[in-house]
Simulated assay, not measured.
Amino acid sequence: MIRGVRGATTVQANEENQIVTNTKSLVEDMVLKNNIEVDSISHVLISVSGELNATFPAKSLRQIPGWVYVPVMCMQEIDVPNSLGYCIRVMMVVNTTVRQEEIKHVFHHEAKQLRPDLMQRLGE
């Protein structure tokens, strides 16, 4: 079965180091909480809010051992009024036997407000 694992984080400024550091931390946490093996990853989509353009967040994934062949694409998020700014969203598509409701979606920093329903279900 192919499943999507969702994650999101924020940064405080449009600064390359923050974007790379926070994206890497988020993806590593998504992998850890869902016991994901790199060979089971089909691809990763990363979107950023409009004010983030200092670097490609995908750059951070190349720092993770074994991820050199994982297809990653970055894009800009839809500019919805009053949406969360300085936000990086990740959709990791994986092959797994885990049921949909057992996937642990991960939200860091201010992105926790995006899906309080999932945060509550996960006990965070």
Rank of each mutant, 00 (worst) to 15 (best):
L118F: 08
W67E: 03
S47M: 07
G66R: 03
S42Q: 14
N34T: 09
N17P: 00
G4Q: 13
V44A: 04
V94T: 07
E15S: 08
A13K: 15
R62H: 04
E51T: 15
I78T: 13
P57C: 11
V93H: 07
V98W: 11
Q76W: 01
V31R: 02
P57N: 05
V11W: 11
A8R: 06
P71L: 07
T9E: 01
M119V: 14
H43F: 13
V93G: 00
L26S: 05
P71N: 09
I64S: 02
M119H: 04
N22H: 12
V27T: 04
T97M: 03
Q113P: 06
V11I: 09
L118P: 06
G4V: 12
N35I: 00
P81F: 12
C74Q: 12
V80K: 09
R115C: 14
I19H: 00
S49E: 06
V31D: 01
T55R: 00
C87S: 14
V90C: 05
R89A: 11
S40D: 14
I88L: 06
T97R: 01
P57D: 02
L45M: 13
V38T: 10
M119Y: 03
N82V: 09
M91C: 10
V106R: 03
N35M: 03
L61F: 05
K112G: 12
I36E: 08
M92R: 06
D79G: 12
I64N: 02
V106L: 03
R99W: 07
F107Q: 02
H109C: 07
N22Y: 08
N34W: 00
A13W: 01
A54E: 07
V94E: 07
Q120A: 13
G50F: 08
M75W: 05
N34H: 02
E28D: 08
L61E: 02
T97V: 07
E15R: 13
L61P: 00
I41H: 01
I46T: 01
